[in-house]
Nucleic acid binder design. Structure first.
Lengths: 349, 349
DNA sequence: CTGAAAGCGCTTACAG
DNA sequence: CTGAAAGCGCTTACAG
């Protein structure tokens, strides 16, 4: 025995039922299957329930119905515009559909995220949004055997363990480099983020290397890796200017790096795009207001959030399989890239 | 009768208990009060439970223990760096403490947010983070009578219905305007956001007006209101330049506006800060990399998220009252403001 | 259209 | 240190 059986007053269904003069069943039905309850009775129940501020106990409801209406999102961080935007859209879409969003941040390395993801499930998540390829063996195992819908975003791994609502990182970057090659650039550098447990970075670097190689161009070995910080964009760009002044095209795997690179060029009196071309990735809001306006690969963050929410919800409610979506990307063409200069200007130090 | 009583196999405590050869009680105790279970038995339970991939059912656990370990955050949007950063820190802190974060976005108008906030509670939130003053009468009523801990952030209303972990918006902006006044500026404009249901905006505008008035300065009627978009910063700055070319100081209630204002000045050949001073608010990451580096009021987003999480958690677990915190702000001094020019330059159109 | 009863899967006070 | 039993607050199949 634990508490006394609350068979009388209180504030649960029982109390409402008593106040109205019907059974608990009828009160519950009025909320969950209103069409089964006589109009007149239903009205009275709603009225009195509202008066009493009655709300069904979430845990009791979830236990009995085996539905929590909670969906989990495990993302690297919220402190990065593009992820925040995706979750924002994910949450809004889900909210419209009648579900809530529980969030956990895991960092950018996917190799050991199982405990974080499990926390979401332990709180009742009925479905899961992930970012990038599933690399944690324990998580791989979990999604294989677990019965809940899972979708991953940002990536489009062909051999993925789970359906993906993402874009082709390789192709997007291959096109960007291709574009620069056609503009006549001969010497390149890439500012990337860490590749450990991050398939997007690996795909982008591979695209950069492969494309340069195919064109017999210099630079494929010049890949700088940093965590996402604007200062890193500044310092890396300075380093490039110092060590490889022949560089005319810099591919940044994040607008965070690009804005830093732009700043470094300004500091050094290097003109963009006359002397050097810089391309970013993400299409942050401020990209077009930079000086010069930043050409950048537009990542469809909001769209991914929306589609992920929709397919997950359909999977939960209609038991449909989770549907992957390959989203096309485009380069937001602005003025930070241009034809390769015939000669490098002098770099002032 | 609903389902058959799962008294035998399955995958719950019962199954684990049977596999180990103890009672459900002992299995449950091994997880919840390990010190009450004999070392040897405990080990065996952990081992077998892990093998069977056993996880206590969240809803059952929550129903019985009346604890969900879920905390709710109702914020205007995640698609704005400063809110995303606050929630990011909130989540991380809570995660460390053993709780999860459920999020809902409500927009910037606080007058009708009760249904959103209630959704959080209906999903099991044990405590609530809010943003700004509580203005929705229904919400006010709810927090007054509800027994769950609530904290609001960003504001510091003295007569608040709920404790606040925030900063003094009025004072922060009064200081900023005061600073500009001391620099000799005579003619001002403010680019603000919408004031409906937004006490932070109202406080900032009041601070601006009061301070100007106290100094007998021009501009207190020149407050432009827009939703947070960089283009609005551009167009409003252009308007200011056109209609009030005598303006030498522009206070932006968001760095989003400030970056737009900076851009507009650049477009028009107006030099910052030689011709006009611009100050932002938020201290976005990119503020110091702008050209010129942006002077801006630093909003302590991460700190608010952390403190809110800590006080809410203490309130839940130790039944301590929720503790408010008034956080000091400072102006991140950079180069976008300077002494008032003696004469206005010509504005090219 | 409605009510009585079972049971969702745990945890915990009680008794030993 | 352990087990049997009660009960958390709902929802729903069953019977009427």
């Amino acid at each position: 025995m634990t508490r006394k059986k609350s068979d009388s007053a209180g504030s649960g269904v029982r109390a409402v039922a008593q106040a109205v003069g019907v059974s608990k069943s009828t009160v519950s039905r009025a909320f969950n299957s209103p069409e089964l309850v006589k109009e007149e009775v239903r009205q009275k129940i709603f009225e009195i329930a509202a008066e009493m501020n009655y709300r069904p106990h979430p845990a009791a409801r979830a236990l009995r119905s085996q539905r929590t209406h909670i969906v989990g999102a495990a993302i690297p961080t919220l402190d990065y515009a593009i992820f925040a935007r995706m979750v924002n859209e994910f949450e809004k879409t889900l909210s419209t559909l009648g579900a809530s969003t529980i969030v956990i941040t895991t960092g950018f390395d996917n190799r050991d995220v199982f405990d974080d993801v499990r926390q979401l499930v332990d709180r009742g998540a009925e479905a899961l949004l992930l970012v990038g390829e599933v690399e944690d063996p324990k998580l791989k195992d979990f999604v294989r055997h677990a019965s809940l819908p899972v979708v991953t975003t940002y990536s489009a791994p062909p051999d993925s363990t789970v359906p993906a609502v993402g874009f082709d990182n390789y192709r997007a970057f291959a096109e960007a480099v291709e574009h620069l090659a056609k503009l006549g650039h001969k010497s390149y550098a890439m500012i990337a983020s860490m590749t450990d447990g991050n398939d997007r970075q690996r795909a982008r670097i591979a695209a950069y290397r492969d494309t340069l190689e195919r064109h017999g161009l210099i630079g494929s070995d010049r890949v700088y890796k940093h965590t996402y910080e604007m200062r890193s964009g500044v310092s890396t760009m300075e380093q490039i200017l110092d060590e490889y002044p022949e560089t005319t095209a810099v591919i940044c795997n994040s607008d965070v790096f690009a804005i830093g690179a732009l700043k470094a060029c300004r500091n050094r009196g290097v003109r963009v795009p006359e002397d050097i071309s810089i391309i970013g990735c993400d299409d942050f809001d401020f990209a077009e207001l930079l000086d010069p306006p930043l050409t950048t690969i537009a990542v469809p963050a909001a769209r991914m959030g929306q589609l992920a929410a929709e397919t997950l919800w359909a999977a939960i409610t209609q038991k449909k399989p989770v549907e992957g979506h390959l989203i096309e990307t485009r380069i937001a063409m602005r003025n930070s890239i241009g034809p390769a200069p015939n000669a490098r200007i002098q770099v002032s130090t």
